[in-house]
Design a protein around this nucleic acid. Structure first.
Lengths: 224, 224
DNA sequence: TCAATGCTTCGATGAGGGACGAACTATGCG
DNA sequence: CGCATAGTTCGTCCCTCATCGAAGCATTGA
């Protein structure tokens, strides 16, 4: 008998289809109400409520009450990263996907991962930033390079954040098997992309669709 | 209702305590047999076998058959990474296991591994036997040295056993990251230790507790 | 205060799946 | 061949837990 962190407890929380659907829905980054999550999961409201209590008790969710609405969200980037990793394994071992649908293809190109950008586009961006030594990557860690502050200030992003969250974090991509950029910097970049309307979010999906001009602008700024 | 990679399926595989224990045990990197995994998980052999089929079917494990032994190992680094990530979340949300309990410390010193001794004590013993050339170790293999028969006969252990099991086997230690001695010789030594009452087994645990005098005797015989 | 809405709790039901013992298969050794 | 050991399959038991309807709180608006 082993001991240590109770991994079975956490995994079994994710292991129920209804809860897995809820968590996947929350990977979009926006907090959702119990009714919305019930709909996403395809269960009745009482059932959803029961699942949400369990996820709360397990520490995977946070709750923000606003009037008679209760907004549930992922507890943090670590939880989001876990879901992403599990998704990666599931995608790797699950050959049951007949063919990648059109929406699926869009997801591989660019999608929201909690609060930052993921997908081929995001992986390419990180690669480029590292190649230009704006960011430094050694092993699993990503750090700011000497020119980072100036570089991002030019785009209107302040990397001198005082937040307790790390500025840079590596997040494993489930479609491409490579890391992309998370952390406050990753979040700021996604904000920028949406703010500048370089891309829009697909409704009811995590997919992020770049407009032709938006793609150009993005590539000029981040890949140029 | 969402679709995509079946994350619930994968998570539920990890979500069973017995299977979680097995996967954690395999995180050491060495492949283990069904019996060893049954012991690790604290379930009977049939139960373990059933769990192993499920893990295999889920694509989380690989299987290498060698004669009548079947060695199970993690399917790859991606799976290992997933376990690691889940462990991280479990550790973060479960503050209940912060400090290593007394039993945990004892486990690191000496414990039963299948049918032989593991832990710091066992690693030290193998080191000493190799240094004195009673045993010969090249790479991953351990063999009897020329003086082995005489040496162990003096302690009352017959290494010329007719058993079909190998006399010496290397086994990777979970606490220390080094190998200790398994095989019939390892088993015989553990028998000797318990028979001479140098140590007793902690109830319901793999920990092995040496008495002060027992420790002295053991060290004189095996480390002297 | 009363109705409407959002959500949780309670209670009953049912199914999935984890547990083990016993029997069966496979490999190895003499 | 016969015996021993390693594993799997089968059958059965039992318990957990997901599910939903109905009822209970809580917040808002009139």
């Amino acid at each position: 008998m082993r001991e240590g962190p109770d991994i079975a407890r956490i995994a079994s929380l994710v292991g129920d289809p209804a809860r897995a659907n809820m968590l996947t829905a929350l990977m979009g980054g926006t907090a959702l109400t119990a009714s919305e999550l019930a709909l996403e999961a395809g269960v009745s409201l009482p059932t959803a409520s029961s699942h949400l209590s369990k996820l709360m008790e397990g520490g995977l969710l946070t709750l923000a009450s606003q009037g008679r609405h209760r907004y549930y969200g992922l507890a943090g980037p670590q939880v989001a990263g876990m879901i992403e990793t599990i998704t990666g394994v599931a995608a790797a071992v699950g050959p049951q996907r007949v063919r990648p649908g059109p929406r699926d293809a869009a997801m591989r190109v660019a999608r929201v991962c909690y609060d930052h950008l993921a997908g081929a586009q995001a992986v390419a961006m990180l690669d480029r930033l590292v190649a230009r030594q704006v960011l430094l990557r050694d092993d699993k860690e990503i750090r700011l390079g000497p020119s980072a502050a100036a570089h991002f200030a030019g785009i209107g992003i302040d990397v001198e954040s005082k937040a307790r969250r790390p500025v840079c974090r590596a997040c494993l991509d489930w479609s491409v098997r490579r890391t992309h950029l998370a952390g406050t910097l990753g979040a700021a970049i996604l904000d920028k992309i949406l703010l500048e309307k370089w891309a829009r979010r697909e409704k009811d999906s995590r997919a992020v669709i770049f407009s032709p001009m938006g793609k150009q602008a993005f590539e000029k700024v981040f890949l140029g």
